[in-house]
Design a protein around this nucleic acid. Structure first.
Lengths: 192, 192, 192, 192
DNA sequence: GATGAATGAGTATTCATTCAT
DNA sequence: CATGAATGAATACTCATTCAT
């Protein structure tokens, strides 16, 4: 029991170290040895938990993406009215990006870079379905513009990533006021 | 003259090779030797034009960014009415992302990654001033929401990057129709 | 008793695994972990039976060599006439190489390679004495050429190793006919 | 010109170092770094001349084998009478094993071990054809036993490898007398 | 200017071996 | 006895950079 516990902790430490180092230095400047050191294990130990560096990265990506979607859809049920549902989900996304900035930044980097395997990328996408369903419902009800979900995502969700990156670089501050402005912009862009 | 010409051509070949390789393989999988090979020069030759790999990357970034802004503001004059001016600029940006996809993808990767020096990043920003001025004018005229330019950018400009990346991955198609939808979403998000 | 039995079985499994893996992949590509896996034990268990990898290899060599000589001299008694005795022993050697090919191939590889300690090699040799005695007798009786036993061995015994390796590589077939030819060649080379 | 010369010298130094180290320590205990050190180059330099460790080994094997066969058939012409021809070739083989012991030992190790690629092994064989032709002629003339060339090789040629290994281990001495005995044994084993 | 050969300093990965359980 | 997890010490191989020509 204690052993399993320790094993899980080590794996998590590796994942956290990877996120942190890739965020700060980029994938190309994140050697396995540094990850090991930050996680307080030997480099060889990484290979007990992950097949190789690419596998480590893929697995971290998938798990962070799952944590993200899991966080996002907490409290949401498919019978929530469209406008309320969208606001709920949007706020959870914003919350996640603010509270789990490391994870969110990591995702942003992976999503704009060819460092993740295509299959892992796909695997990360499937859990977004409830949002797509919500949008479809909104379109059927005539509340949302009849556009491709990619457009809906590009204008209502993705901007948060940009804003978070800017906040991380110290150029911009996400607070109650700017978040409200952001939500209005998001809603205006997709609602009829 | 012929010599200078050849020199410039070599430099351009190096820049193009860097863009192409970083796009396809990521920075971490783009060795100098490959760049040299693709540009048909010796690895040593790179160091006649750039100080080192980081310098090469920074310079490529800055030049591509300049090409981008230069393209974007062609035909635009500061006395254009706000709505027309925004539409003009927005369309040029969309144009660039469609016609110079390699360059645009490269910028998207650099902008979400810690591979570019902060100073180079700043240098890439300064040429965006005309757009910021336009927005300020629009806000003074009560046409645009009185938000931070970061918010304006996040919602009216940045989504195009996301859409382009998606198009590049084969998931989405930017055509006359979707571009029009995109523009409406952009305008709705920032206009009062 | 059952415990001792199991212990012996494990040790044998380790020896067999070592032989098989070294034969197929060579010593350099035979990690302890693979040996353990093939023998269905933990890597750590190997060290309960052998001091280290070198010791494992030496012990395997010695035991296989003993199995070989023991097999070879079964039914042979020192009072057998020289010609009969040689034929008897030669046939047993040929038999062993055909029936215990794994073991024989392992010996061939060890005998031509610096992977076995010199002392272990010596230890493997001592049990060949009956053959040396037979040869001495044959020379005293004027039946065998008065040559160094190394020459006798090189021409009458060692060729079987070569033929077995060739058969293992699929290039040659040892059957009743070729074995008879081989024996004639062997006998012709050493008899007066 | 001087550059090409140096290049060839470096390559040869690498080959010699490989032979020497593999002979003394075995393939498994011959790291690239040691080979580099012995050849007075950087480890990275090896990879300018050979693709990887396996390629290095294969190439060394092939070149040594070619040197061997080339040495062996010097002075031999296909019209030499069978007995004379065999004696000539046999002596050259013995000569090579005595004078180029390092090379010969290396071949012996490679020939009894799965460290060489099968294709490289095949490539090493093709140059032995003149000997096979000689044997065929001898069989047609009724001088040699009508056996498989593998048997002829096993009994008339291969024993020299064994004797050389023994001499290298200090157990046996190849001199004029023992060489003559060896030749007689070889000839007796294959001649009618 | 231009180059190709050369390399030192890494880097991912492996593996023999140990040790707490 | 037996083990699986852990690791330090290699090891093959890469790559940004240099330098003699």
């Amino acid at each position: 029991m204690a052993k399993l516990q320790k094993s899980i902790e080590k794996r998590n430490a590796l994942i956290q170290a990877t996120i942190s180092l890739v965020n700060n230095n980029g994938f190309h400047a994140t050697p396995m040895s540094k990850i090991a050191k930050m996680a307080n294990v030997s480099p060889a130990t990484i290979y007990l938990y992950f097949e190789n560096k690419q596998d480590l990265l893929n697995k971290v990506y998938i798990e962070v993406k799952q944590a993200f979607t899991s966080y996002v859809f907490t409290n949401y049920t498919p019978d929530t009215p469209v406008a309320d549902g969208f606001k709920l989900i949007w706020n959870r996304i914003a919350d996640f990006k603010l509270k789990e900035m490391e994870e969110a930044l990591f995702l942003a980097q992976c999503d704009n870079t060819p460092i993740i395997d295509e299959t892992s990328r796909q695997e990360g996408l499937i859990h977004l379905q409830p949002l797509l369903d919500l949008w479809k419902r909104g379109q059927e009800e005539g509340i949302l513009k009849p556009m491709s979900p990619y457009l809906l995502y590009a204008y209502s969700i993705n901007p948060l990533s940009f804003l978070m990156v800017m906040q991380n670089r110290g150029a911009f501050k996400l607070n109650e006021e700017t978040l409200e402005e952001a939500f209005q912009a998001a809603w205006n862009s997709i609602s009829i």
